[in-house]
Design a protein around this nucleic acid. Structure first.
Length: 920
RNA sequence: GCAGAAAUGGUGGAAUGGUAGACACGAGGGACUUAAAAUCCCUUGACCCUUACCGGUCGUGUGGGUUCGAGUCCCACUUUCUGUACCA
């Protein structure tokens, strides 16, 4: 019988369902291992072959770990809230939940066909009230806590209120939106409403008027990581800055911990670096510049305190609070005109133009070290959201200040010896200081580094400012003006936000008649009837953003049906955190920051035992599409083959990759594809029509989408799994090319054919050659899986198959081991062999075989032998070893390498005085 | 600009500092077959020598360096991809 993938795969998938093979429960007698995939957003388009890449890799690893004796948690679920379902709802009036449920069913069907070992008993959906109850619960905790900078963790807001009542803000150590100073008397004199308003300054989930990325097309605000180059990541609509009252999460309070704890996790350097840049720690100084003829002090942040003698002007961000205070009557008109201009520029225009613009405020600041007057300007190259929204400009040593100074004719004073600032600024932080001597401070002759330190010390001693660490990481905007998201457990009394009682959770989404904003511009929830508390107080109209539900989902998998807690203490203490997380690198500055923040917050509350959610993280590369083209000769219906196209004037046209095989076009299918091609003519080469190709994103419009269902139908899930792994290193992006798939399919068929002739009743031992081939494979595959190098494991299987076929192996034990090794990669195939060998139970619980190279170890005992990877053993000889000693070692090594009674080693290399290598 | 990763045959890609190109695709040749498909075998980095066998030379983006030995380590450069950007 030939290898029948359809029959085998459907039979074992049914078996796994019937036996609940992948159900996992906590088991203290076995070590745990938690393997997680980033859960998908179930889009209407279904899965294409790129999506399962990471799932297959993690599934292999999960199955391997299970065979190694670990209790493996490997769950799957759906990130079910999202824009596409809502936009579809707006267009069709269909409830987004309905679309979502349909899409999920389709995803599940596709996933099931690939043979994953997910424990579906633990499935979660972010839009399920039993799930989002805990998203809402976490929000309430954040509302009820503040970040204490002294204890370095979140503390109950009641503790802060007590402090305010007794001491005011005196001695208060709390992360805050802005600096507030008040006495206990002042606090106690405030009304409840005023007090609650003020507490927003410290809550971890708080409301604030913030500049938000407003996307008019989508009718909502977007987080910074949802915006790229001035347009929305989803949809590509323009985004502008707008001041709105929004819910925010004080992620910035955790900036230092998010940064430091990166050292605790096993992530790729590039991903860690991306997060470090996103957090953007910079050490500097905050300094106060007095303003001439005024008692206002202008506070700025700088990392280059040493350049204070080169300050020739100051710059305010247009949105800065100082602008109104420092604009003189004479300049008022000019400043207002400028502010108006800036306001009407979108973020995109601001980035595109890169034009140097600005206006003089009319005021002057006094350089505290020289007493000199310096003009204060307003310009949009300074950002309101970073530092204090004001800078001291040192044109000689900052390129942006330099461009500004040149444009407006402001002076440039070089401060570093040898720096030529006639053409451009000298931005490097090195060199010897000049022109830097004032009445109280002399930096001349110092290295930049020392000058920075000396200046910082000086300004701190003189009370001119203080040393300050700034982070680029901003608080996360947590409101979305949409329907399809988690409702906030919040109501308003006289416009002030109050939390619902915990007993009201989950607060479920109401039905509404239309998913558009209301005529008065309120979010869609404004249409809901009776969207109030029982007492009649209005409920919050915004919903939570996409990252709310995805921030703690890995915790919920540990204990998904618990209705008392997000996760029980027992389950959390057993599963702890994710040992291996597989997903795309595009979440580096979004989900992976928010999740870490969310987890740290719960850790502070004592709700979870691990401070970092994801111990090891692997980013799978993107699978791109490989598009095919035909070349139509201008003004004809004639198409010319690839290598002849340059002889004509042609237009390339995308053709559906499913009618192309090895770049050869199926002419009949092409003619049938579209009516206008029915009478198409072709100019062939070698009797074939060869299509051109290009690597592009996989999308419907390029006709390059390859559906995993089609591959499974034609070749089987095991072939798909093996082939996706065989394509190349998992981390690397690569185009999907169905051309090579025959190779791995052939491997399975050949192995099958070999197995069909096996002698299943005999228990004779393996021959030395068989032993060698099989143990070589065990070692290679075991090491490759640990290193996440699946493409080379698949190659190793093919080599073993070739060797065993050449030997015409019929030995039962060979196939017993092969089934175990193949089980993670081709589970259906392995299961079939496993059962035909007469085993009870699933191969997923078959013990992972160990390789045996004891003969070699024994024989080389007298030399320091290192077993470094692969099939190579190295004997390090002392540098002063004599020629005789080396020869003796080489002989011993050679003898040892007749490993497992097999044949001669492939190679023994002896380099005089150094090393003996044995390749087996 | 800054940061990270990468550059190896016609293609995807192998290679603990130790036979570069594993494995696979594609291509070419052959066997089987009425034929096709399927399957099996051989060749397949470039160049040279040879009737053939046997050989030889050059080869991992460019230029240097370390080493008995470099695709791999170090320095500089070029190009590509990814992320990020008036962050003071």
């Amino acid at each position: 019988m030939d290898y029948n993938h359809k029959e085998i795969e459907s039979r074992w998938q049914q078996y796994w369902r019937d036996h609940d093979t992948y159900r996992v429960t906590e088991d203290a007698s076995r070590p745990k291992f938690y393997v997680l995939d980033m859960f998908p957003y179930p889009s209407g388009a279904g899965l294409h072959v790129g999506h399962p890449l990471g799932y297959i890799a993690s599934d292999i690893f999960a199955r391997y770990k299970r065979q190694k004796g670990f209790n493996v948690l490997h769950p799957m679920g759906y990130d079910a809230y999202g824009l596409p379902a809502e936009q579809y709802a707006i267009q069709t009036g269909q409830h987004p939940e309905k679309t979502t449920v349909q899409n999920i069913a389709r995803y599940r069907e596709q996933l099931d066909k690939i043979g994953f070992s997910f424990d579906w008993n633990r499935e979660i959906r972010t839009c399920d009230p039993e799930y989002y109850k805990w998203t809402q619960w976490a929000f309430m905790q954040m509302f009820n806590h503040y970040y204490d900078t002294e204890s370095g963790k979140a503390e109950p807001i009641s503790k802060l209120v007590e402090h305010l009542r007794a001491h005011g803000t005196e001695g208060l150590h709390a992360a805050q939106s802005r600096e507030v100073n008040l006495t206990a008397e002042e606090w106690n004199a405030l009304s409840e409403r005023e007090q609650r308003e003020l507490l927003m300054n410290w809550r971890i989930a708080y409301q604030a008027e913030t500049m938000v990325n407003w996307c008019a097309e989508l009718g909502t605000v977007l987080a910074n990581d949802e915006v790229s180059e001035g347009v929305s990541v989803r949809g590509g609509y323009p985004v502008e800055q707008k001041l709105m009252r929004q819910w925010c999460l004080r992620v910035s309070a955790y900036a230092q911990r998010l940064l430091s704890d990166l050292e605790k996790v096993e992530w790729s350097d590039s991903l860690k670096e991306t997060q470090r840049n996103w957090i953007g720690r910079s050490e500097g100084a905050e300094m106060k510049f007095p303003v001439k003829d005024s008692d206002i002090e202008l506070e700025i942040f700088t990392t280059r305190a040493d350049t204070i003698f080169g300050v020739t002007f100051m710059v305010l961000a247009p949105e800065s609070e100082y602008v109104a205070k420092l604009t003189t009557p004479e300049q008022k008109e000019a400043v207002e005109a400028y502010l108006d201009e800036v306001r009407h520029k979108t973020e995109r225009e601001r980035q595109m133009e890169k034009k140097v613009t600005g206006v003089f405020s009319g005021s002057y600041a006094i350089n505290p070290l020289t007493g000199k007057e310096i003009p204060i300007w307003i310009a949009d190259y300074v950002l309101a959201g970073y530092g204090t929204g004001a800078i001291m400009a040192v044109p000689a040593h900052d390129s942006r200040d330099y461009a500004f100074a040149r444009k407006f004719g402001l002076p440039v004073i070089p401060l570093i010896e040898g720096a030529d600032v006639s053409e451009e600024s000298f931005d490097a932080k090195e060199g010897i200081m000049i022109n830097s001597c004032g009445p109280e401070l002399d930096l001349n002759g110092l290295q930049v580094k020392d000058a920075i330190a000396k200046t910082k010390k000086f300004i701190e001693e003189k009370g001119l400012g203080r040393v300050k660490v700034n982070y680029r990481l901003r608080d996360a905007i947590f409101s979305r003006q949409r329907y399809w998201g988690e409702p906030f457990p919040v109501y308003y009394k006289d416009g002030t936000a109050y939390l619902l009682d915990e007993s009201a959770l989950p607060l479920q989404l109401p039905e509404i008649s239309s998913y558009l904003p209301t005529s008065t511009g309120e979010p869609p929830l404004g249409r809901a009837e009776n969207w109030t508390t029982p007492e009649g107080y209005p409920l919050e109209l915004c919903t939570m953003p996409g990252f709310a539900g995805s921030s703690a989902y890995y915790l919920r998998y540990m204990d998904p049906r618990n209705d008392k807690d997000l996760v029980s203490r027992e389950a959390d203490e057993y599963w702890r955190n994710v040992d291996l997380y597989v997903g795309g690198a595009e979440h580096a500055t979004g989900h992976l920051i928010y999740s870490r923040f969310w987890n740290k917050f719960l850790f502070d509350l004592g709700k979870v035992v691990e401070e970092e959610p994801f111990r090891k993280l692997v980013n799978q590369g993107m699978i791109q599409g490989r598009s095919n083209f035909v070349y139509r000769i201008k003004d004809t219906n004639t198409f010319v083959s690839r290598s002849l196209k340059d002889q004509y004037q042609t237009t390339p046209i995308h053709v559906d990759v499913n009618m192309v095989s090895n770049d050869v076009l199926d002419l009949d299918r092409f003619k049938a594809w579209r009516p206008e091609y029915a009478d198409a003519e072709f100019i062939l080469e070698d009797g074939k029509y060869l299509c051109g190709y290009a690597v592009e994103k996989m999308s419907k419009s390029m006709f390059n989408v390859v559906n995993p269902d089609d591959i499974v139908e034609r070749y089987g899930a095991d072939t798909l799994r093996l082939y996706e792994m065989f394509l190349g290193p998992i981390e690397q992006s690569k185009p999907w090319d169905t051309n090579g798939i025959d190779g791995v399919n052939r491997f399975l068929r050949k192995l099958w054919n070999l197995f069909e002739k096996a002698d299943l009743t005999s228990d004779k031992p393996m021959t030395p050659e068989e032993r060698k081939a099989v143990h070589k494979l065990i070692k290679k595959v075991s090491q490759d899986i640990e290193n996440f190098s699946f493409n080379t494991s698949v190659a190793a299987f093919m080599i073993a198959q070739n060797e065993l076929s050449a030997m015409k192996t019929t030995n039962r034990e060979v196939f017993d081991i092969m089934a175990r090794l193949l089980a993670p990669f081709a589970p259906h195939f392995a299961e079939e062999i496993w059962h035909r060998l007469g085993h009870e139970g699933s191969v997923v619980d078959a013990e992972w075989p160990a390789w045996d190279d004891s003969a070699l170890v024994e024989a080389t005992k007298k030399y320091p032998v290192s077993f470094n990877g692969k099939m190579r053993y190295t004997i390090e000889m002392p540098a002063d070893a004599s020629k005789e000693e080396i020869e003796a070692a080489a002989l011993a090594a050679e003898g040892a390498a007749k490993w497992l009674d097999g044949k001669q080693p492939k190679k023994v290399i002896v380099v005089p005085n150094k090393i003996v290598n044995i390749v087996i």
